[in-house]
């Protein structure tokens, strides 16, 4: 942990500096990454939230201007905490990298002119991913002041949250070393890939998976965790997103599932409070209850599968108002309360 950002609570991920967040498309992985960044920024910390697919999901979530390849502050958290946002761009990262290490000058322009930059960032397999994660890697390791280095020096960020590619691609994305191994056997891209891999596989990093209590997202979560393990990436928690309230009691659910709720009783109750108990309304309410019971049963099955993964699991409520900047804060509080941050 960084000096000056003393934690008074234990969290499940103390000592972790890079939180990678993945999930199936549509599960709300960007929302969860944003909430996690805000949660980590509590207690006066500085947190970077980075995206790598150029989707501008972060700026849309926080309702701020589109992010560039320069870090910008996007939100405040409790006790002076700050969240910075970054949309990592492979081309900008490569030019910056070349500038930093090679002082290329004229050659930089030539590389661009001859299409070499495009080649390296879009076509050369794996190089693009090395550049994208490389930028995140650099942010994780960066020190507050240039001269102050070494183990005791303050880091620029207390934590970095990466809104990573979806479950289907994440293991390949993170396994950069393997991707470039056959192609770049030596050279700086290779050594960069080696350093990145060392950090990704260290206790400083965890990969969290976001899911919904539905069959497909849960299946993808199971698959992704197996794939991450197979390539030696540290698997973090499972975040179950958009959990809906169960309004019916277990007993009522059972009755509803058997379609055994008394039509007459419901109609009589409705009449008592002057709701017109038409067939359409009474049958509609009963059908809704039956559908609800069916869905709760499916969610329960999905939940059992998640429990079988034996990972720390966090639950985030479905936001009735949809996701906006306030909603993200509500979710961040839920993550803090459950010990994720």
């Amino acid at each position: 942990m960084a000096p000056g950002a003393a934690s008074v609570r234990d969290t499940d991920w103390d000592g972790v500096r890079l939180h990678v967040v993945t999930g199936k498309g549509g599960t709300g992985k960007t929302t969860v990454a944003a909430a996690l960044a805000l949660a980590l920024a509590g207690q006066g910390r500085r947190v970077l939230l980075a995206e790598v697919e150029g989707r501008q999901g972060i700026s849309q979530t926080f309702d701020v201007a589109p992010l560039a390849s320069v870090e910008a502050r996007i939100a405040h958290a409790a006790q002076g905490g700050e969240v910075f946002g970054l949309s990592v761009d492979a081309k900008a990262a490569l030019l910056e990298y070349l500038h930093m290490y090679y002082k290329l000058g004229r050659a930089g322009g030539l590389l661009e002119k001859f299409g070499a930059i495009d080649f390296a960032t879009t076509i050369a397999p794996g190089v693009r991913d090395v550049l994208l994660i490389g930028k995140v890697y650099e942010a994780v390791r960066r020190h507050k002041e240039h001269r102050a280095k070494g183990p005791g020096a303050a880091r620029a960020y207390d934590a970095v949250v990466l809104d990573a590619p979806p479950t289907g691609r994440v293991a390949r994305f993170l396994n950069v070393n393997h991707e470039v191994a056959d192609l770049a056997r030596v050279g700086p891209i290779r050594s960069q890939a080696d350093s990145i891999t060392a950090m990704l596989k260290s206790p400083q990093t965890v990969v969290h998976v976001v899911t919904l209590l539905e069959e497909m997202p849960v299946q993808e979560t199971v698959d992704a965790i197996a794939e991450l393990r197979a390539v030696g990436m540290p698997v973090g928690g499972v975040v179950v997103n958009q959990v809906r309230e169960t309004i019916l009691t277990p007993k009522a659910l059972k009755t509803a599932a058997r379609s055994a709720i008394s039509r007459e009783d419901v109609a009589a109750d409705l009449t008592r409070v002057k709701v017109r108990a038409t067939d359409a309304i009474v049958d509609g309410l009963l059908a809704e209850a039956r559908d609800h019971a069916e869905r709760v049963a499916l969610e329960h099955e999905a939940d059992q599968v998640v429990a079988g993964l034996r990972r720390p699991t966090y639950r985030l409520p479905s936001l009735s108002e949809g996701v906006d900047a306030n909603g993200i804060r509500e979710l961040a509080e839920a993550l803090v309360a459950q010990g994720m941050a």
């Binding site: 590389l111 192609l183 770049a184 700086p188």
Partner: peptide
């Protein structure tokens, strides 16, 4: 030369 430096000659 720059590309060789960056990607390695093999690639």
């Amino acid at each position: 030369t720059a590309m060789t430096k960056l990607l390695g000659g093999q690639m």
